[in-house]
C-alpha cells in the first residue's frame, strides 16, 4: 500500500535541548524548574509528528522552544539548516491551545492578518484568503466575528490564519484541547487534509493518546517533568488516511502501547509517590 520510500530529509533538528526556568524569589518560584530535556530529535520533512505526555510534562515548552518563542537553556535548535533562537523564523506557523482569534476582526480579516502586513498584492491576498477560508469550511462565515462562532470554528479561523502564510513547518499546541470528543475527531480529519495538501511538516502536541495514534506518522511519548522522549513509535499509517482508522486493530495496539509507556508517567504527574506499588496492584 505504501508508496516508494521518499528520501529522508531533516527539516528541523533539536540537539540536547534543555529548558530550565530560573528561580524567581518573591514571585512564588523559589527553586529553578527543570521543565524539559535533554531532547534530541530530527523532524523529517513532510512527516506528521505527534507529542503525547502527561499534563505539565513540558510539551508546550518543547513547542515554544522549537518555534523560537523561547530560547533553550542548553542545546540547539535548527530549522532548514539555520539556527533558531529567540525569534520565530519565516516558514514556521503556530496554532495555540488558547483561542487566539482576534475578536475585533471578521473571519476574513483574521485570516488576512499576516498577509496584509507582508506587502502581498491585494489580489493575491484575496485569492489566498478565500482559498484558506474555503479549505477550512468557513466560506459562509467570512463576514462573521469570532464571537458568533463556536469554539471549533474559532480554532479553524486560527488554523486558516496560519495556513495562508504557507508555512513549511506547522506547530499545533493542543489546538483541540477545549473541544468535545466528536468535534475533535472531525478536526483531526481537517488537519490530515491540510497536511496532505500543503506537504508541510506538522508537529502536534496533544494529551489525547487516540488523537496522536490516529493522526501521526511518528509519536513521541514524553515523560513527566522534566520532559524527555521515553519512546518514539512509528504508526505505519498510509498517507491517505482519515478518522475511520480508529476502528482498525492497529489503532488499538498503538494506543495500548502508548498507555503502557505513559501510565506511570501520568501517575507521577498526578503526584503519586508510590507509583510502583500502585502499578503492582
Amino acid at each position: 500500500m505504501n508508496a516508494a520510500p521518499v528520501p529522508r530529509e531533516v527539516h528541523a533538528e533539536l540537539k540536547g535541548v534543555t529548558r530550565i526556568y530560573p528561580a524567581v524569589p518573591g514571585a512564588g518560584a523559589k527553586l529553578p524548574v527543570h521543565a524539559l530535556g535533554p531532547i534530541d530529535l530530527d523532524l523529517v520533512r513532510g512527516e506528521f509528528f505527534a507529542v503525547v505526555g502527561p499534563s505539565g510534562c513540558g510539551k508546550s515548552t518543547f513547542l515554544e522552544v522549537l518555534a523560537g518563542l523561547q530560547k533553550p537553556t542548553a542545546g540547539s535548535v535548527s530549522f532548514e539548516g539555520k539556527p533558531v533562537g529567540g525569534h520565530v523564523p519565516e516558514g514556521i506557523g503556530v496554532v495555540f491551545q488558547e483561542d487566539a482569534s482576534f475578536p475585533w476582526l471578521t473571519v476574513w480579516h483574521n485570516v488576512a492578518f499576516g498577509l496584509r502586513r507582508n506587502g502581498v498584492a491585494a489580489a493575491e491576498v484575496r485569492r489566498r484568503v478565500e482559498d484558506a477560508i474555503a479549505f477550512m469550511g468557513l466560506k459562509d462565515f467570512a463576514g462573521a466575528y469570532p464571537s458568533q462562532l463556536s469554539g471549533g470554528m474559532r480554532q479553524r479561523v486560527c488554523i486558516a490564519r496560519t495556513l495562508v502564510l504557507q508555512p513549511r513547518l506547522i506547530l499545533l499546541d493542543e489546538p483541540f484541547g477545549a473541544l468535545d470528543a466528536q468535534t475533535r475527531l472531525l478536526m483531526g480529519d481537517e488537519v490530515l487534509r491540510l497536511w496532505r495538501r500543503t506537504g508541510a511538516t506538522v508537529l502536534l502536541i496533544t494529551h489525547a493518546l487516540d488523537e496522536a495514534a490516529m493522526l501521526a506518522d511518528r509519536i513521541g511519548a514524553m515523560s513527566a517533568r522534566p520532559g524527555r522522549f521515553i519512546e518514539i513509535i512509528a504508526t505505519g499509517w498510509p498517507r491517505d488516511r482519515d478518522s475511520t482508522i480508529v476502528g482498525e486493530a492497529a489503532f488499538g495496539e498503538i494506543t495500548g502501547r502508548l498507555w503502557e509507556r505513559l501510565r506511570s508517567e501520568s501517575l507521577k504527574a498526578l503526584g503519586h509517590s508510590g507509583v510502583s506499588a500502585m502499578a503492582a496492584e
Partner: peptide, 14 residues
C-alpha cells in the same frame, strides 16, 4: 490583553 496575543505577535514577527 490575553497572553497568547504576545505569542501570536512573535509568530507574525511584529
Amino acid at each position: 490583553v490575553p497572553r497568547v496575543l504576545d505569542k501570536v505577535a512573535r509568530v507574525h514577527r511584529l
